[in-house]
Design a protein around this nucleic acid. Structure first.
Lengths: 195, 195
DNA sequence: CCTACCGATCGGTAGG
DNA sequence: CCTACCGATCGGTAGG
């Protein structure tokens, strides 16, 4: 069981990186196998299909985003600004901690079909709603400057979701610094008055 | 000649939408042909290869971004804030005016190979540099609040590049309203002090 | 985890 | 712009 799970996890890790770099459709089962030094068909001893591998990555990563957001909201003290900052920091950290799977979740969920695709869309909408409703609440209390909450939420989330495109682990910026920067920028965006 | 060009343009428009919706690798030459009500091989009377179609879309769209940025900087009066607002508005409008080709430019350039891929990367870097250097200049003059210019530039551009993911032409927001919102949010982000 | 192999589909060509 | 067709590669199976 440990054997099986660790092998599956290795497959998902390798696939995450390939899917992120080249896209799901442009990555063949044999590409994944080659990165693991096994033959293409041998992969099917561990997984039932290529789409199942994508699903495993997307589902697990969706759970990481949701769990991090839950923890951030739970730990916050009811202060709208602090809650938003915690939410942004949590999202940034989920990405920087594993750029591969985060990139796949953000861009490759479209390759899923049927119920799985619909389920991801629903979870993504619910996740985005948390940001939007928090922004709406902040505007209502006067903590945030007036703005279109939907546009602001999309702007913040898109800015965060662009991180895999430029962040390099071990590079100039640490995981924490990136999270700090984005929390700061998001708060400025919602509070600043243009002089 | 007019015939040829208009036919090529129709191919690019149809391909833009398919590449944006499903990705370049997941879109077959026959998919493009079907959307034009012709047979797959007939497409090769107008284009030399599938990658050439992608290249035509990416190259033209890159030019539209660059041209819009040139015009925005040229029209601005030297005021750093106004210049950044104009740059952001221009970028937003290029996207909302043609979500298909913009989405392809933003996400599918990775499918290009060799020199074309390298050329796009170089142009993209030069384009990003304009944002970064303008932010650096604004910080130096005190017009913008202190921040990491690279992170701020990536945040603004990623926020803008997320527009194809949610903007629906003919929907609640017009092209101009979206441009206004993003210019406002970008300025707030760079000017606001967190209280 | 391997070799041998399957049907389907891919981008593209020949010849009209 | 069409039909007929090509070699290559795809995801996946059989049988060990």
């Amino acid at each position: 069981m440990v054997e099986l799970n660790s092998r599956r996890r290795a497959i998902e890790d390798v696939a995450s990186e390939l899917f992120r770099a080249h896209g799901y459709a442009a990555t063949s089962v044999r590409d994944i196998a080659r990165a693991l030094d096994i033959q293409g068909p041998s992969l099917y001893a561990h997984v039932a299909s290529k789409e199942n591998v994508l699903w495993a990555i997307v589902d697990r990563t969706a759970g990481r985003f949701e769990g991090a957001a839950d923890a951030a909201i739970g730990a916050a003290s009811g202060d709208v600004q602090a809650t938003l900052a915690a939410l942004v920091r949590a999202h940034a950290r989920v990405i920087t901690e594993d750029v591969g799977s985060a990139g796949v979740f953000i861009h490759e969920w479209r390759a899923l079909t049927g119920e799985r695709r619909a389920a991801v869309l629903e979870r993504r909408d619910a996740y985005e709603r948390r940001f939007r409703e928090l922004i709406e609440a902040g505007i209502a209390t006067g903590d945030f400057e007036m703005t279109d909450p939907a546009v602001a939420a999309f702007a913040i989330l898109s800015a965060l979701n662009g991180i895999p495109g430029w962040f390099r682990p071990g590079g100039r910026l640490t995981t924490d610094r990136v999270a700090d920067h984005f929390a700061e920028l998001a708060l400025r965006m919602l509070q600043g008055d243009t002089r």
